[in-house]
Simulated assay, not measured.
Amino acid sequence: MSKPTDMSEIEWRSRCDLAALYRLIACYRMTDLIDTHITLSVPGPQRHFLINRYGVAFEKMRASDLILIDLQGNNVDSRHAEGRVNAAGFVIHSAIHEARPDLHCIVHTHTAAGMAVAAQRDGLLPLTQHALKFYGNLAYHTYEGIALSLQERERLVADLGSHNAMILRNHGLLAAGNSVAAAFHEIYFLERACQAQIQALSAGVALSIPDEAVCLHTAAQFRRDGIDGIIDLAWEAALSLIDEQRAEWCQ
């Protein structure tokens, strides 16, 4: 499907990129029926962002299935005037999009490993190289129930601070970035770190934890010059796994 004539090129490209990310999250088995969400801001003064039409399976997400909403949760998408949006998704994502305009893409998941680590008092442990990416760079938000209250937004934003990733205690994971590629990279590494932690703890043997100097050094290495190019390469490699679906997600 080509770009609708009444839609800007940047919005259409944003829709295609976000639909592809939804499908990749499904490809990597990070879905939870219809109850998680990914958003992407559309460049422009209105500060609108795209979110999934509630009820569409991530595996089948298309550009035309995404709904454009504003920071107040109003549906501003003429194509989906009656489209339903996950209320908790709006609460969580609108708060971050408003407070952190540098984070264009936000991913929230409820994976088994992510929820398991979110339920552990000590959170993510510095057990693996993947986990050390987040050493000193991971926020935590205390569980308050299903995120339906607008009052929770201030606390979410305060807890996130300047970080790009957060564990929602007793709930799941949240990761964000300045692009779909960066957000995918964050959630992929955070998810894999959680998976490794659960498996390591299940072995019931003593664990090896690097000393703090090594942890800090490794975290800094993940922020070195040139890392953005690696993130983009990883994104393109991941997209190749679903390349045969490209004609579908850009519909």
Rank of each mutant, 00 (worst) to 15 (best):
A113V: 07
Y140F: 15
L125F: 09
G114L: 07
L127A: 13
Q120I: 14
A118M: 01
A116T: 02
A139K: 10
Y135M: 08
L124F: 12
D122M: 09
Q129R: 03
L124K: 10
H130E: 12
M115V: 13
D122L: 12
R121T: 14
L138W: 07
L138G: 09
A118K: 00
R121G: 07
A118H: 00
N137L: 06
G136Q: 04
A118C: 01
Q129G: 04
Y140T: 13
A113Y: 11
Q120P: 00
A112H: 13
A131Y: 01
L124T: 08
L132I: 08
T128C: 14
D122S: 09
A119I: 03
H110F: 12
A113C: 14
M115G: 13
G136Y: 02
L125V: 09
G136P: 04
T128Q: 11
A113Q: 05
Y140D: 12
G114I: 02
H130N: 11
G123S: 14
H130V: 05
R121C: 11
T111W: 05
A119L: 09
Y140K: 11
L132V: 06
G123V: 11
A139C: 14
G136I: 06
T128V: 12
L132K: 05
H130F: 04
A139L: 10
H110L: 09
Q120F: 08
Q129F: 02
L138A: 11
G136R: 04
T111G: 12
L132S: 02
A112P: 06
G114P: 05
K133H: 07
M115I: 10
D122T: 07
A118D: 01
A139T: 11
V117T: 02
K133F: 04
A119D: 07
T128F: 15
T111I: 10
P126L: 12
A112N: 14
H110T: 09
V117D: 01
A112K: 15
Y135F: 15
